[in-house]
């Protein structure tokens, strides 16, 4: 599609279609790296590496595709509050169930 012409008419702060495609390619590359861990044994760094890649993907979709980078900070607050609350509360639950130590 005519990606380069996009900038003329849209909201000035929104990225161009080309930028979106770049992000998607990045996401695809990270996904490929994630999946490769299934085939290649990378030892004890496996879980930290997976977590980092997941967070990066999550961040890019939220920041660029969901426009949190450009939009009102209020939206980010709603979302991040939910995310932090969910992470904190459910991590405590998993701790009580001794999930991390293989319970």
């Amino acid at each position: 599609m005519s990606t380069e012409a996009a900038a003329t008419n849209t909201d000035h702060e929104h990225p161009t279609d080309a930028k979106y495609v770049q992000i998607a390619i990045l996401l695809a590359v990270i996904t490929a790296a994630e999946v490769s861990t299934y085939f290649v044994d990378i030892g004890p760094v496996l879980i930290p590496a997976l977590m980092v890649m997941m967070v990066v993907k999550f961040f890019y979709v939220a920041a660029w595709f969901m426009h949190l980078r450009f939009d009102s900070v209020l939206f980010t607050r709603f979302f991040v509050t939910g995310l932090i609350l969910a992470t904190a509360v459910y991590c405590i639950v998993l701790t009580v169930f001794e999930f991390w130590t293989g319970g």
Binding site: F79, G82, L83, A86
Partner: peptide
């Protein structure tokens, strides 16, 4: 969506 985080978290 903030609310949904807690749903999927659960």
């Amino acid at each position: 969506l903030g609310s949904e985080c807690l749903l999927f978290g659960g």
